[in-house]
C-alpha cells in the first residue's frame, strides 16, 4: 500500500519534471525561431539604410554591405540638392492619399450604413450587386479603356484616386461593424423626426469611429503605396506619385538625371547611382516606417473585425 503510494508520487514528480523539461525545450525553440524570423524581417531595411550611407566608390568596388565601409551622406545630399521632382512626388502622394482616403471613407461608411439597415427592403439585392464584382470582372482591358478612352482620365489626378476609392471588402467589414450598433438608437432618432442621412451623419458616424479609423488607415496605406495606377495612367512627370518615382528611379536613372538636369544639376556629373537608389528607397518609405509602430494596432483591429466573416 505505502509502496504503491511512493511509486505513484515518484511518477507525479517525474511527470512534473518532464513537463518542466518540455516547457524549457519549447521556450528555447520558440524564442530562437521568433527571434530569427524577426531578424529576417528587419535585416533588409538595415541593409538599405547602410547602403544608402556608403560612399559610392566603395559600393561599386565591394557591393552592398550591412555596415558602411566608408560612411557618406552624399546620396542624400544629392537627393535634396535639387528637390523639385521629389517635392512634387511627395505633394502628389500626400494630396492623393488625403483626398482618396477622405472621400473613400465617407462613401464606404455611407454605403455600409445603408446595407446594415435591417428595415431596408432591398439590402440583400444591393449587397449582392456589390459582392458580385469580386467574383467576376471584365478584366483589365475593358476597365482600362473605360478609364482612358471613355472617361479621359489619363494623366489626371482622378486616375490615381478613383481606382482605389471603393473596395467591396472594406464595405463588408464596415457593414458588419455597423450591424452591431443597436437598432434602438436609429429608432428613437426616427421618432424624433431625423432623416436617414442626418442619422448617419450625427449618430452612426461617431459610433463607428473605431471602424472608420481602421478602414481609413487601410485606405491611406493603399494610396500611399500605390504605384500601379501611375504605371497605367500617368506619363506626366508632374503627376508621378512617390512610389512610382522610386520605381522609375530603380529602373532608369537616366530619366532622373535628366529631370535633375532640368532643375539645375549638371548632367555630366556622375551621380552616386547605387547609393542614390537606396537613399530614395528610404526617403519614399520613411514616413511609413516612422508611423507604422503607432498605427499598426488599427490594422490588427481590422484583421480581427474582418476575420469574423470574410
Amino acid at each position: 500500500m505505502s509502496a504503491a503510494e511512493i511509486s505513484f508520487d515518484k511518477k507525479v514528480v517525474k511527470s512534473a519534471g518532464m513537463k518542466q523539461m518540455d516547457r524549457l525545450i519549447f521556450a528555447a525553440i520558440g524564442y530562437v525561431s521568433i527571434a530569427l524570423l524577426s531578424i529576417l524581417c528587419i535585416v533588409p531595411f538595415i541593409l538599405i539604410i547602410s547602403s544608402s550611407l556608403t560612399e559610392e566608390s566603395r559600393i561599386v568596388l565591394e557591393g552592398y554591405k550591412f555596415f558602411p565601409s566608408e560612411f557618406s551622406t552624399e546620396a542624400y545630399k544629392i537627393l535634396f540638392k535639387y528637390p523639385d521632382q521629389l517635392i512634387q512626388a511627395y505633394t502628389v502622394t500626400i494630396l492623393v492619399t488625403l483626398a482618396g482616403t477622405l472621400v473613400g471613407l465617407f462613401l464606404t461608411a455611407m454605403t455600409a450604413y445603408c446595407l446594415s439597415r435591417r428595415d431596408f427592403k432591398w439590402r440583400n439585392q444591393f449587397s449582392f450587386f456589390f459582392f458580385f464584382t469580386t467574383l467576376f470582372s471584365g478584366g483589365l482591358v475593358p476597365w482600362y479603356l473605360m478609364m482612358v478612352n471613355y472617361l479621359h482620365l489619363k494623366d489626371t489626378p482622378l486616375a490615381l484616386i478613383i481606382p482605389l476609392l471603393l473596395n467591396v471588402f472594406y464595405i463588408i467589414v464596415m457593414k458588419s461593424f455597423m450591424s452591431n450598433i443597436p437598432e434602438a438608437i436609429v429608432e428613437s432618432a426616427k421618432i424624433d423626426g431625423a432623416g436617414d442621412f442626418l442619422i448617419f451623419m450625427r449618430l452612426i458616424l461617431p459610433l463607428a469611429k473605431p471602424a472608420l479609423a481602421t478602414i481609413g488607415l487601410f485606405l491611406a496605406l493603399g494610396y500611399w503605396n500605390d504605384w500601379y495606377n501611375a504605371l497605367l495612367f500617368v506619363s506626366s512627370e508632374n503627376l508621378m506619385p512617390l512610389q512610382y518615382y522610386l520605381y522609375k528611379m530603380l529602373g532608369n536613372l537616366d530619366g532622373i538625371r535628366k529631370a535633375m538636369a532640368g532643375s539645375g544639376a549638371v548632367a555630366t556629373t556622375p551621380l552616386p547611382s547605387e547609393g542614390l537608389k537606396m537613399a530614395m528607397t528610404i526617403v519614399a518609405s520613411g514616413p511609413i516606417l516612422i508611423a507604422y509602430p503607432f498605427i499598426q494596432k488599427y490594422f490588427v483591429q481590422g484583421l480581427t473585425i474582418g476575420a469574423v466573416k470574410g
Binding site: I34, A35, L37, S38, C41, I42, P44, F45, L47, I48, S51, I59, V60, E62, G63, Y64, K65, F66, L221, W224, N225, D226, W227, Q243, Y244, L246, Y247, L250, E274, K277, M278, T281, A284, S285, I288, L289, Y292, P293, Q296, F299
Partner: peptide, 30 residues
C-alpha cells in the same frame, strides 16, 4: 517581435523590388 514581423506588410512592392535589387544584383548584391 510582432511589430517587427508586421513591418514588411507596410511597405510597397516597389520598395520590395529595391530590396531585391540590393540583395540579388550580380555585381554589388549582398
Amino acid at each position: 517581435t510582432q511589430s517587427v514581423l508586421f513591418l514588411p506588410y507596410f511597405i510597397s512592392w516597389v520598395v520590395v523590388g529595391a530590396i531585391a535589387y540590393n540583395l540579388l544584383n550580380y555585381d554589388i548584391g549582398t
